[in-house]
Design a binder for these strands. Structure first.
Lengths: 201, 201
DNA sequence: CCGAATCCGTAACTTAAATTACGGATTATC
DNA sequence: GATAATCCGTAATTTAAGTTACGGATTCGG
């Protein structure tokens, strides 16, 4: 029974940590401010997460789950429409406040440990699924990969989808994208990919 | 006469600042460590740069000059070969240690001021030149923009060229690219752009 | 050669954040 | 209902970095 309350409490703390990270950055997100904001005690924070990097590693792990859930929503289906839908959700996620905040934290970590975990939980789990989607499109003759691997096409599609938007969000050079922009870019990326590798008629 | 010595000294200090930034990150690059490494005094650092952000703003300004110089090397000419050459140099620059370090510093700055300056000195000055290059290719019938503006094509080309490589470098998820990789990507990006918007025969 | 300015080396000073410690309240378990 | 565990609120401790201050050395202009 109390497991549930504990999970709810963790979610509250981690939500507060995200909010602080978004507002103040990694260095500015202090443990005291987090304790006050989440209504938690320092003792709880350190007892649960070990130290400050540990707390943000927990955030990264939770984010990885979210990404997987979003992708699982479109599992099973295939085709250009699916690719567009996935692209729309994915771009919103990649340029959304949480991913941006986590990437900032990873960029601030000189050891590269946070960055490695973020890449492992994010790109490394997303790309195989995209490649899978494209491979199934190839099997259904909806795209002709030529001599390109599905992985290479997935890389290309992601580049077309996101470009350097995520980096520009991370350094604060541009504001968040709205739903329309995500949709337009997802359509455009998929259209360009299909024009580069059109299915044999 | 002493202007020259002063400039040399500034370069030494800023080189040391880059090295520290690359090794320790923005938070870890302390003013004391910089003073020791550069053989400079705290007094000089603060007298010349005002404060720590001011020092890194100077680094960003110097980086912007470097980028412009690289682009100016290929001024005047046009065509696919030029685009490939520019892409090769540009990608090496974007994913090189200095740009990566600066982007990390910008990501660590919660105010977004460093990010704004970095984007202004980097992307905002680079993209018009790329767009110019592409517009000249269109004028010479080497590419058919259709109803796309040169600016949109430049965006597309940059996305094809760099994708999310720069972000992955910034969070430390991948090592630096070698010359061959830069060349291959520049060729591929230009080839894809030309296949998407082929010149009328 | 001399005064003025600049710069180095080092050490204070100040602030702030990570981490630890602890008394009191709340909750779970028997 | 008592006892143990958990957690809150707050404060103490420690460490470290940004910034300022200053005596001595070096350099520049006359």
């Amino acid at each position: 029974m109390r497991e549930e309350a504990r999970l709810r409490r963790q979610t509250q703390i981690e939500d507060a940590a995200y909010a602080l990270l978004e507002e103040k950055g990694y260095a500015g997100a202090t443990m005291q401010a987090l304790a006050r904001r989440a209504g938690a005690s320092m003792e709880t924070l350190y007892s649960w997460y070990g130290d400050k990097p540990g707390l943000f590693r927990a955030l990264i792990a939770r984010n990885a789950e979210t990404v997987q859930q979003v992708l699982d929503g479109q599992a099973g289906t295939a085709g250009a429409a699916t690719l567009i839908a996935v692209g729309e959700s994915l771009l919103a996620l990649l340029t959304g406040p949480r991913a941006v905040a986590l990437n900032r934290a990873a960029a601030a970590d000189a050891t590269g440990a946070l960055g490695a975990e973020l890449a492992a939980g994010g790109r490394a789990t997303v790309m195989p699924r995209i490649a899978d989607l494209i491979a199934r499109m190839a099997a259904a003759c909806q795209i002709a990969p030529g001599d390109e691997t599905p992985e290479a096409l997935a890389d290309l599609w992601l580049a077309l989808l996101a470009g350097d938007l995520q980096l520009r969000r991370v350094i604060g050079a541009i504001p968040a994208l709205n739903d329309t922009e995500c949709k337009v870019r997802a359509e455009r990326a998929t259209r360009h990919l299909l024009r580069l590798f059109p299915p044999a008629p």
